[in-house]
């Protein structure tokens, strides 16, 4: 059965994702573990660090295109951004401006700021935001791949949406505040974080795809992320933002807010989009959902 040859992106480590995403043997790591130091800030708080501080950066090839890559490790401190972690990503994006690779692939798997290094993390995310926009302004597409167990939350949710495009799996989540945070502050009636089906109807890949918040939806499979990224870059032309484009985006966001601003569940929006059996959406496989979206009235 084909199930057994699937290599889940959700489950894989950052290094396993890179190994399967890039052309075999093409990856070369910058600042690899053997020459790196774990975060001194974690050590100060009596916590063990990781040699790569939870992010792997380097260069490689994707379908023979030269690319730069950054992959966050969701299993280490929730992929959260600390001083070294953030600085590695910033350095990679600056390198992209100088080197002009075919793309930067950003494998996001992060809850946002690492609280143990809160200020360093927040500022680093701000620097990453500026650096992503600098790379894009230099004509280098930055593609966010979101399908890890930590999703893309907090500042990393903002970073993902600053990228040229987002490729997601159904398992991926993309949002600002985590459901647990909303539940803690606003109560379980506002958001029951344990109702995982609801969490995914609000933040998951399928909903984001139906709402055009991600450009491509792929299966939870490393090979599918690879195919999805190659196909996306095949057709991609990175062009600088213009006033007209930002105005159009502003209008689209305004329109969407007035149309769906009162909705509280993906089911309501999907029905409003013209999907006849919205409750079936979570059960559809990736191809079925893509076909469903193509058939929707525009």
């Amino acid at each position: 059965m084909s199930l057994s040859i699937r290599h889940s992106w959700f489950e894989a480590t950052a290094r396993q994702r890179l190994a399967g995403l890039l052309d075999p043997g093409s990856f070369c790591e910058f600042l690899p573990p053997a020459v790196a130091q774990p975060s001194p800030h974690l050590a100060q708080l009596d916590l063990p660090g990781a040699f790569d501080d939870g992010v792997v950066v380097g260069a490689g090839q994707l379908g023979s295109r030269q690319v730069l890559v950054a992959a966050q490790e969701g299993q280490f401190m929730g992929g959260a951004v600390g001083e070294i972690h953030g600085a590695k990503i910033v350095g990679l994006l600056r390198r992209a401006v100088a080197e002009r690779p075919a793309a930067v692939l950003f494998l996001i798997d992060s809850g946002g700021v690492r609280l143990h290094e809160a200020n360093a993390g927040l500022i680093a995310i701000s620097e990453i935001m500026r650096a992503v926009l600098d790379a894009r302004a230099a004509g280098v597409p930055v593609v966010a791949l979101v399908g890890g167990s930590c999703g893309a939350f907090g500042g990393m949710g903002i970073v993902a949406k600053l990228c040229s495009a987002v490729v997601m799996s159904e398992e991926g989540r993309l949002a600002l505040s985590g459901p647990e945070v909303i539940e803690t502050v606003a109560g379980v009636e506002e958001f029951d974080a344990k109702d995982r089906a609801l969490v995914w109807r609000v933040t998951g890949g399928k909903h984001r795809y139906l709402m055009d918040d991600c450009a491509a939806l792929v299966d939870d499979d490393i090979a599918a992320f690879r195919r999805g990224s190659i196909e996306l870059l095949d057709d991609w032309q990175e062009t600088p933002d213009t006033l007209a484009r930002l105005r159009a985006k502003q209008a689209r966001l305004q329109g969407r807010l007035s149309a769906y601003g009162r909705c509280r569940d993906g089911l309501e929006i999907w029905a409003a989009l013209g999907i006849s059996e919205p409750e079936r959406v979570p059960l559809l496989d990736c191809d079925e959902l893509i076909a469903l979206k193509e058939g929707l009235p525009t």
């Binding site: 059965m1 398992e171 995982r196 089906a197 998951g204 979570p282």
Partner: peptide, 15 residues
């Protein structure tokens, strides 16, 4: 594997 027949409770889902 179940051909869609198994309907897991919400807390076990990540979709």
């Amino acid at each position: 594997w179940s051909g869609g027949l198994y309907a897991p409770p919400s807390r076990f889902r990540n979709w």
